[in-house]
Design a protein around this nucleic acid. Structure first.
Length: 191
DNA sequence: CCCTGATTCGC
DNA sequence: GCGAATCAGG
């Protein structure tokens, strides 16, 4: 395989969307993540905000400005105690593939993992990472993608987190934090 | 062990 | 230019 125009374009697109090199490689096919990374570097696009963001003390040129919607500490303090986030997700995205709606049923919400009292930090963390969620559909879930449901299954605003799972667990780090409550805080109720 | 990107260097 | 091997990190 060679880096045709189309492939490079897809590479740029996905990289811009924050997809990992391995994901891009998978999508492209015929290349390894190393190839992708190598190409990315040669193309000059490099830095992004992912797991590892080494702050180089080296002034780099950024010919490809990525329109990142930076959010300040508390953009929308939604004090959702239990459910993940049934809030309307009407955000403008550069290249958001239109997911067709799934689960037309009008069922009540399925039993979602939740607790009545989760540490505010954990919640904040979740709200933070859900912005970066891959927003996968049910079929796109793998053993390695976070299976935390977000939104209302009866609407289009429903997807699965999809971020890399914590090895051995069904959720990503952030969602593990709210999914598995040691039920310690609620237990010691002296009543 | 799973994963991530970064860099090197023979091709 | 390419990308496997390697490095460095979470």
């Amino acid at each position: 395989m060679s880096w045709t125009d189309e492939r490079v374009e897809l590479l740029k697109k996905m990289w811009g969307e924050g997809q990992s090199a391995s994901q891009i490689a998978k999508e492209l096919g015929g290349v390894t993540r190393n190839a992708v990374i190598g190409k990315v570097h040669r193309l000059g696009l490099s830095n992004r905000a992912t797991g590892a963001a080494p702050a180089k003390s080296e002034p780099k040129e950024k010919p490809a400005p990525a329109p990142k919607a930076e959010a300040k500490p508390k953009p929308a303090p939604k004090t959702e105690p239990a459910r993940p986030a049934p809030a309307p997700t009407a955000e403008a995205k550069p290249a958001a593939p239109a997911r067709r709606q799934i689960i037309p049923a009008g069922q009540p919400l399925p039993p979602q993992p939740s607790a009545n009292e989760i540490s505010p930090e954990a919640l904040a963390k979740v709200n933070e990472i859900e912005k970066k969620a891959k927003k996968l559909t049910l079929m796109e879930l793998t053993e390695k993608t976070c299976k935390w449901p977000v939104g209302d299954p009866a609407t289009e605003d429903f997807w699965f987190c999809g971020l890399p799972v914590e090895p051995g667990k069904p959720y990503c780090e952030a969602h593990v934090g709210v999914a598995f409550q040691p039920m310690s805080s609620r237990r010691d109720r002296r009543r």
